[in-house]
Design a protein around this nucleic acid. Sequence first.
DNA 1: ATACTGACTAGAA
DNA 2: CTTCTAGCCAGTA
Length: 116
Amino acid sequence: MKSYYYAVYEVTRRIPHGKVTSYGAIAKYLGLKSGARMVGYALTTLNQSPFHGIPAHRVVNRNGLLTGKVHFGSPTRMADLLRSEGITIENDQVLNFQEVFWDPSEHLPPFIPTEY
DNA sequence: ATACTGACTAGAA
DNA sequence: CTTCTAGCCAGTA
């Protein structure tokens, strides 16, 4: 497993309760060029990794769409988790996306690649 | 080793 | 406005 996977997990773990972020935002914070896809891939392996307490449901795509919901077992699991945190979901999409969006590069200290 | 597949996204057509 | 395309790179067959 590649090292930046851990970085992705760390960032995801720090998303505040009731907030969401996007794959691209995480990729940008980590300095992965166009690496949004890799972020999604890293989260895919989350199911079989030792990291289970990670709030992966707080990561959506740039439009606030719940693109990763198919990985949560039930079709409504991801949306339910988000709703339980006070986020409004309709049609698998975050309605108040702007308000609940949390940008890692604005709330976390600068990422240092050498620490992984 | 080659081919194909994605929890993506920005830009071109 | 809506597709389409390229770039991204680890897994799997």
